[in-house]
Design a binder for these strands. Structure first.
Lengths: 165, 165
DNA sequence: CAGCTGAGTTCTCTTTAGCAACTCAGCTCG
DNA sequence: CGAGCTGAGTTGCTAAAGAGAACTCAGCTG
C-alpha cells in the first residue's frame, strides 16, 4: 500500500487495527458520554443525579456508563452518608481513571485553541499544588519538545499483531 | 453542591457542560470511529477502501465520518492519480487535524500502560526527526512535571458560561 | 464495448441513545 | 404508625446511529 507521494510507508495497514492502544482505550472510553462523565468525576461531580442534570445524559445511559467504568476499574462506587439520610452512593476516579487526565487535558487544549469563542477559553486548568496553568506537551526522550503538530512516526512494537484475513 | 469530603468545590456543576472545550472537541471527534479514522490518516492510510478494510468500518459510516472531518476542516479531500487510472480521492490531515496528535498520543500512552499484553505495547511512536521514543507529558508554567496522575484544578476561564435552567 | 477499480450510495436490520414514568429503601414529620 | 421526600436507580417505548450487503457510477484497459 502506498500514498500519493509514492513514499513507502512501513505498512501501517498491515497491522491489526484493534490491537492498537488507541483502539483498546477507545473501547473503554470512546463512546459518546464516557469521557464527559470522567471529566465530571474529576471535577467533583460524583453523584448520579448531579451527573444527569449537569451532563443532560439519559438516566439509563448514565447507569450503564457508570457500571462500565466501575467494571473497567476506572471508577469506584463508594457509599457516603449525609446526616438525616440513609447511605447513598457516589462515583470517584480510581488510580487508573485519574491517569486518563492527560487525555482530557489534551482535548481541552485542542478545544481551547480551535473552538474557543472570542472571549477565550471556558476553563483554565491549573496545577493544584502551585496554581500555575497546565498544558500537555509532546516530548521525545532525546529532550526535544515536538510542539503542537508533532512529527511522529509509528513503529511496530513488541506487542504488534499483523492483520488477519 | 458538595462531595463526601465536605470540601466545597468551586461549583464546577454550575457551569455549562457543553461550553467546555472537552465537550466541544468531543462533538467533532467523539464518536465511535472518528479518532481511529484520524489515527489511520496520520499513519498514511488515506484512501476510502483502505480505510474500510483496515478499520472494519461500514462504508456508509466511513463516508459520513470523512465528510464530517472535511466539513470541520480536520481533513482535506484531495485528488490523486495513479497511472492508468482516472483521478481518485484521498483524505489527509489538515493543520488542525495534525494538532490532534497529542490526543492520539495520550490515548496510546494510557493504553500502553494499562492494556498492553505481556509482550508489551503494540506500537512505538518515535520522533520523526531524531527517532527517539515520544511521550505526552503534563507540565505547568512553573516548570513542574505533573506526572502520570496530574493534580489539576479547573478554574472558570474568560469564556465560561453558567448553566442555564 | 465488456469488464475492472475505487469511491461512494441505498436499503434493510440491529444496536444504542433519549425520554418519561415507575420502583425502592430508608429517612423525617405529623 | 403511615405519608411523603430523596437519591439512585430500572423499565418500556420511540428515535437515531451503526453494521452488512448490494447496487451505482465514471473512466480506464484490452
Amino acid at each position: 500500500m502506498s500514498n500519493s507521494t509514492g513514499w513507502a510507508v512501513p505498512e501501517y495497514s498491515a497491522f491489526d487495527s484493534e490491537t492498537c492502544s488507541i483502539a483498546r482505550t477507545l473501547a473503554l472510553v470512546g463512546d459518546r458520554w464516557t469521557l464527559l462523565v470522567l471529566r465530571d468525576l474529576a471535577n467533583g461531580v460524583t453523584r448520579f443525579d448531579d451527573l444527569t442534570t449537569h451532563l443532560g445524559i439519559a438516566r439509563n445511559v448514565l447507569s450503564k456508563r457508570l457500571a462500565a467504568l466501575v467494571d473497567a476499574e476506572l471508577a469506584v462506587r463508594t457509599g457516603y452518608r449525609t446526616e438525616g439520610s440513609r447511605e447513598r452512593y457516589e462515583y470517584r476516579l480510581s488510580r487508573a481513571g485519574r491517569e486518563l487526565m492527560p487525555i482530557l487535558l489534551a482535548f481541552m487544549g485542542w478545544g481551547d485553541r480551535h473552538l474557543a469563542g472570542p472571549q477565550g477559553p471556558p476553563a483554565l486548568p491549573v496545577h493544584a499544588d502551585c496554581g500555575a496553568p497546565v498544558r500537555v506537551a509532546v516530548t521525545c526522550e532525546a529532550g526535544h519538545d515536538l510542539g503542537e503538530r508533532p512529527r511522529v512516526r509509528v513503529q511496530p512494537g513488541p506487542g504488534s499483531r499483523r492483520r488477519e484475513g
